Amino acid sequence: MDMRNRPYRSVLYIPGSKSRALDKARSLPVDAIIFDLEDAVAVDEKANARATLGHALTEGGFGARVKIVRINGLDTEWGRADAQAVAQMDCDAVLLPKVETTAQLDAVSSITGDLPIWAMMETPRGMLNAAEVAEHPKLAGMVMGTNDLGKELQARFRPDRLPMLTSLSLCLLAAKAAGLVIVDGVYNAFKDDDGLKAECIQGRDMGFDGKTLIHPAQVEIANTAFAPAPEEIDLARRQIDAFEQAQAAGQGVAVVDGRIVENLHVATAREILAKSKAIETINAG
C-alpha cells in the first residue's frame, strides 16, 4: 500500500530505548509508529537507543504499521549518527525535528538516501516556510509539533486551540498542495478522553489525516475520530449510485437527501470508500 494512500488515524510515539514498549507496540492497533530517538531518550541513552531500536526493527513483527524513526537534529552531536543508523534500519521513513528549510532536508537525505523523509513542523520559521518545505522531492509527510510550537509562540493552552490555528492551517495548506500526509500534534492530558476526542474531531474537520499520540490509551479515540463514520460511508455509496444513474440518464448532477451531487462530491465519496476499505484491510491483517 502506497504511504500516501493508507490511513494515518493513529500515530503513536514509542521511545527507541525501551525494549518493553517496542515489544508492546507490535500488538497495538495503530496505523503508524514514530520510534523516537530524540525527546523520549535521555542523553546518556542515545547510542543504546539506536542499537535497541535497530534490533527491534530487524526482528520485525510490526505488521502493516508504518515505521517512522525520529532522529535528533543534525545540528546536535547525535543527529548524524542517528541518520547513519536509520539508513540501515528496516523502516519506512526518517522524521527530522524542527524543520525550517529545504537545506535541512537535503542534509539528511544525503545520509539516508532514498528513504522518505517526514518533517516535524514546530517552530515559527517552520510555519512561515511550510510551503517551500513541503515541495521537497523526498518529503512524504508532516507532523505538527504543537508542544514546541506553543512554547516558541508563547501561546496559552486553550481547548479551541485558537492561538495555534494559523500555524496548523499554514502547514495543512502546504501539505495538501504538495500531496503529503499530515498528522496533528499530541494531546498531553492522556487521561482526558473528552478533551482528546474534541481535539481529534477538530483536527479531522480541518483536514488532518490523523493524530500523533503519547499513550496507548489514546489509540481507540483517534482511530474512531479519523475513520469514516458509518453514516458517511452510507452517504458516499448513495451519492455515487445517484450520480451514476444521473449520468446514464444524460444529466450532469444528481440530488441526494435534498442536496446537489456533482463530480467533486463523487470524488470525495470515492476517497471515503477507499479509506474505509484500507482500514478494513489493516484490521483484517
Rank of each mutant, 00 (worst) to 15 (best):
D44M: 06
A248Y: 05
V255P: 02
V41P: 02
T146Y: 03
A242G: 04
N283F: 00
P7N: 09
N72Q: 09
V186H: 02
V30D: 02
A246R: 05
A49I: 01
K277Q: 13
L57N: 07
I201M: 14
R20V: 09
A278I: 03
N223Y: 03
G126K: 13
A269N: 10
S110M: 12
Q88T: 09
G145D: 01
R161M: 09
Q88S: 11
V30N: 00
S109G: 10
V133A: 09
H136L: 11
G63M: 10
E271Y: 01
A140R: 14
V266K: 07
Y8T: 04
E38Q: 15
D82Y: 03
H265F: 13
L149M: 10
A229P: 00
T101N: 09
T76P: 08
A49Q: 09
N147H: 03
S167D: 14
E280L: 15
N5P: 01
K191A: 12
M3R: 13
L139G: 07
V143Q: 01
S10F: 06
R4N: 11
F243S: 06
T166M: 13
M144P: 00
E135V: 15
G113Y: 02
L149P: 13
A40D: 07
G60H: 14
Y187K: 08
G285Q: 13
K176A: 06
L172I: 00
P124C: 04
R20N: 14
K151V: 15
A49W: 07
K24I: 14
A32P: 03
G61P: 14
R26E: 02
R238W: 05
T112G: 05
A107M: 11
F157D: 08
M120K: 11
G252Y: 08
